[in-house]
Design a binder for these strands. Structure first.
Length: 529
DNA sequence: AGGATCAGCGCGT
DNA sequence: CTACGTGCTGATCCT
């Protein structure tokens, strides 16, 4: 059957319609069919129209066609042990299901296509999201090579440390219990050991034992530091070091993540099974895990390229703030410059503490932070935090105006937009509830920035992919981590690829401040980053 | 006994 | 009471 349709699939002048087309591309690829031509994905069309709604076909069909498609369960049974695979389903039943599936998709495409036009989303759909689909399909297909032995060694060491920490904690606590249970841990700390008077509680009235809480109790009892150590080790082993090798595809011997293009409210991608967008980096022990993400052979290198301060640069672009733009045009250390101006000292006089505070403030600004939030984050009184914010806005008056402008636009239109016209609806922007409204206001500030950064890297990915094809390069794009791209590069292509990737990323979209990219190379992700 | 779901937690940008 | 995600373990509820 696949063979009969193959000529049609490979015609570049025929539009292909589907619901979650990346999946179909991957299935057809297994049959040796390379799909060409423009794509129309109903799932992604609907994602652009209303990113925070569900995008599955049953839901779309119910809402837009007033029709409930044949549930898949009637073919393969309910989830669980007895569930069949599609291959085992009676052909007549399967035919009805498949034909309906195609029909519903087509009917949806007529409606969603019209809506994309009406709502000015056709451009981002046709120029960004649809061309990105085959790029992501290729990245997923390629997969990344994992050094299983490296992880096995780490696992053995970490488990040893874990056992040691556990033993010491039980000795100090005077009893054994399940350390992985926050509830049991809370009872031991606050009822048995009674390390403080009025312990903080969670919203369900359990004792709070999260890192922030424990950190504040670190001086009260020596067991606290051990618990923090245990938590860190347990996280690394149970989330990364042990599960990752199990997820290697035995046929390809690679780790194949899935990039989801229709999940986030802002336009970012997400990554699952496994999530390769949250591999540890901050902590030294966690960072070691990156040594297991290796180039595909001795003749290849792991190459990493990431945008420097892309979100703050977008704040400078959108706000038009002359001072912030000047800092980026001069390629200054933005946190140092911010500290110098906010604390009114010479740039070379900025202390480490001042720079850190400025850095926190800069991040806070992108998220629409309050004086309360900033004081919590910096560990300073709220009055001091307010002074810093006031001084920040005095330094960058354009930023303050822009933030107000975002909220104004959101109130008028009920939505905000990225540079490509991608939008986020903000129905709560006029809510009577100040907590709900405040959340919408922060989204009004953050979504255009975070979303435009997502637009930019998506454009860069498409251009890089096309350029690799055009030049016949063997380099493979492997991973995207929001402001970073990772590649497997034959050593002889490294020079050309470095220039090409840097240029595609920096020139993805013209802005009134420069975008800069930093690159790194090594045998693995640890060395490249 | 085993699955589904929620809470709590912590990893990334 | 700073934005956006994924996924682990334990607890609890349901079948």
């Amino acid at each position: 059957l696949a063979g009969k349709f193959a000529p049609l699939f490979s015609r570049a002048d025929v539009m292909k319609y589907g619901q979650n087309i990346k999946f179909d591309l991957q299935v057809l690829r297994k049959y040796g069919i390379e799909v060409k031509g423009p794509l129309f994905d109903t799932m992604i069309a609907h994602y652009l129209l209303d990113p925070e709604q569900p995008h599955n076909m049953d839901h779309l069909s119910r809402v837009y066609l007033n029709y409930l498609p044949i549930p898949i369960e009637t073919l393969i049974g309910k989830k669980g042990r007895s569930q069949m695979t599609m291959r085992l389903v009676d052909v007549q039943l399967l035919k009805n299901y498949a034909c309906e599936d195609a029909d519903v998709t087509w009917k949806l495409s007529r409606i969603l296509s019209e809506k994309l036009k009406e709502e000015k989303l056709e451009n981002v759909f046709r120029e960004i999201e649809m061309p990105l689909v085959p790029v992501l399909a290729d990245m997923e297909f390629q997969g990344v090579k994992l050094d299983v032995n490296a992880l096995r060694e780490q696992s053995a060491i970490l488990k040893n440390e874990l056992q040691q920490a556990e033993k010491e904690i039980f000795t100090m606590a005077g009893s054994s219990f399940n350390l992985n249970s926050p509830r049991q841990l809370g009872e031991v700390l606050f009822e048995k050991l009674k390390i403080i008077e009025n312990p903080k509680l969670t919203k369900t009235k359990q004792y709070s034992t999260n890192e922030e809480t424990l950190q504040k109790l670190a001086g009260k009892h020596p067991v606290i530091d051990k618990i923090l150590e245990y938590r860190m080790l347990q996280k690394l082993v149970s989330t990364y070091v042990d599960p990752l090798p199990d997820q290697i595809n035995p046929l390809t011997r690679r780790l194949h993540t899935s990039f989801n293009q229709a999940i986030t409210a802002t336009g970012r991608l997400s990554s699952t099974n496994p999530n390769l967008q949250n591999i540890p980096i901050r902590d030294a022990k966690g960072r070691e895990i990156r040594k297991a993400f290796v180039a595909s052979s001795e003749n290849h290198v792991f190459f990493s390229a990431d945008y420097s301060q892309i979100e703050l640069r977008l704040m400078a672009h959108f706000s038009g703030d002359a001072i912030m733009q000047e800092a980026f045009r001069n390629n200054e250390d933005i946190h140092r410059t911010t500290a110098a101006k906010v604390f009114k000292v010479a740039p070379e006089e900025v202390s480490r503490e001042q720079r850190n505070k400025a850095k926190t403030a800069n991040f806070g600004i992108i998220y629409g932070i309050s004086a309360f939030g900033l004081s919590e984050r910096m560990g300073i009184p709220r009055s001091e935090a307010k002074q810093i914010i006031d001084s920040y806005f005095e330094t960058f008056p354009g930023v303050k105006d822009y933030m107000n402008q975002c909220i104004f636009t959101a109130r008028e239109k009920g939505e905000v937009y990225t540079l490509t016209g991608r939008r986020r609806k903000l129905p709560d922007i006029n809510s009577q509830n100040s907590v709900v409204r405040g959340n919408a206001e922060r989204n009004a500030i953050n979504a255009p920035i975070q979303g435009t950064a997502a637009d930019i890297i998506k454009i860069a990915m498409i251009n890089i992919h096309n350029e690799f094809l055009k030049r016949g390069l063997k380099t493979k794009m492997l991973l995207q981590v929001h402001d970073e791209l990772n590649f497997d590069v034959p050593k002889e292509e490294l020079e050309e690829v470095t220039a090409l990737v840097t240029s595609c990323m920096e020139q993805a979209m013209p802005l009134n401040v420069p975008l800069t990219v930093e690159t790194g190379v090594g045998r693995n992700w640890f060395e490249a980053h």
